[in-house]
Design a binder for these strands. Structure first.
Lengths: 220, 220
DNA sequence: CTAATTATGGCAGCCCATGACAGATGACAA
DNA sequence: TTGTCATCTGTCATGGGCTGCCATAATTAG
């Protein structure tokens, strides 16, 4: 890897770190791109060569997490039922945050704190999750042997699990920022979801419909 | 109602209608506030006196819908189990769009089309739904006789149902814009969700935990 | 060392959004 | 009707987010 590339990578990380320090110190909205650029001694114009927008920087990690989750799901054994595969993938992801290098763990918690302090940003981060949901749905549908676009069931399954994770995060939002409670809350939400679902529903074993949607009935 | 107030109301509606016409013609992003203001022959500054932002205008109807849904839920009979109350509230809401005046129905469909064409906007609309979810959760928790902040179960139930509605909308996104298919898809998604959930789970009848979250276990 | 590639900085400009001030318009009472 | 008052509206100025353009400086390749 050449000098040029290393330099770029370093600048990128510097921008992220400087930005999040400012976000924590004075809030996301109150922090201007000029401030971030100045902190790294880079022209504001250059900032936008690294990140498409201030929001892009703030939510940059989401793409990394998307990779982690989708690959975690892909790595689950083929025999595992869809719901178990999904929840285990998410569990693995969360526990990865614990076993990570302390530096990465600290970054993760800082992200969470900034997001929890900015409802709009938090909402946007979940909005970006929609893309991840699509990918997860494709994989789940494959495992269920159904079609991810005409059959809403894999989509529903994915939505249920991601909802649980989201609720788990929400529960930990206010309370401090230590990782343990967050992990516990997500675990708990996933367990509750498992209790809530009818056993075997995720395996499409019964001859239940699911394709009714394509008929687009028009009552009344 | 005085002339002044009528005028304001008329200007407000004109702005919304002009905006959505432009949104459909050239896209949301490509439409500037100046264009909207010009179309209604109003100064751009005045635009911001009616709406806090361009996005506010585009998502204005969400607050109206929030009212409809929360009051629909509140109106459900007290004996009705929580899940049924929720789904019926949503069903009523959707069917209301059908029985509405043709003008309102047309507006509703136009909203959907613009949202479906703008992923960011769509995502933001669901983000705003978070507020609605909170209110629904409070009511559901009340009916379940549990606490909406310490017990994640009512939150999960609400999240499941709203997820289903969202998936129903998604299914209808591409296909044309006629109301029938949308209603059918949402109905279908709700039915599938009912199939997916373990009967009685929403009534917290069993002695299942639910409060485990507060212990914040930290495995590994 | 030279030449091509590429990152950077500065500038000008667009759009969104907000505060301040002044003028216009409707509301209301004498 | 008229005059006062509240409120709405337009204009101006400002700041922040974001982009295109061009010149310059740095890195890399030959």
């Amino acid at each position: 890897m050449g000098l040029r590339e290393r330099k770029k990578h370093r600048t990128r990380l510097s921008l992220i770190d400087a930005a999040f320090e400012l976000f924590q110190a004075q809030g996301y909205e109150a922090t201007t791109v000029d401030q971030i650029a100045a902190a790294v001694e880079v022209s504001p114009r250059t900032f936008f060569r690294y990140f498409g927008s201030k929001e892009d920087l703030a939510l940059d990690f989401t793409v990394e997490y998307e990779d982690l989750i989708t690959t975690a799901l892909a790595a689950r054994p083929e025999e595992e039922p869809p719901f178990a595969a999904l929840t285990h993938a998410f569990r693995e992801f969360i526990h990865l945050m614990e076993t990570n290098a302390a530096e990465d763990t600290e970054r993760f918690l800082r992200h969470r704190r900034v997001l929890d302090a900015n409802p709009v940003l938090l909402a946007t981060s979940f909005a970006r999750m929609a893309e991840t949901e699509k990918k997860l749905t494709v994989e789940i549908a494959r495992r269920q042997g159904t079609d991810p676009v005409t059959d809403p069931r894999p989509r529903l399954l994915v939505a249920f699990v991601t909802s649980a994770v989201r609720v788990g995060f929400e529960c930990s939002a206010g309370g401090a920022g230590h990782l343990g409670s967050l992990v516990g809350n997500v675990e708990n939400a996933l367990s509750l979801t498992e209790e809530a679902l009818r056993p075997g529903w995720d395996q499409l074993s019964l001859g239940s419909s699911g394709q009714v949607a394509t008929k687009a009935s028009s009552p009344r």
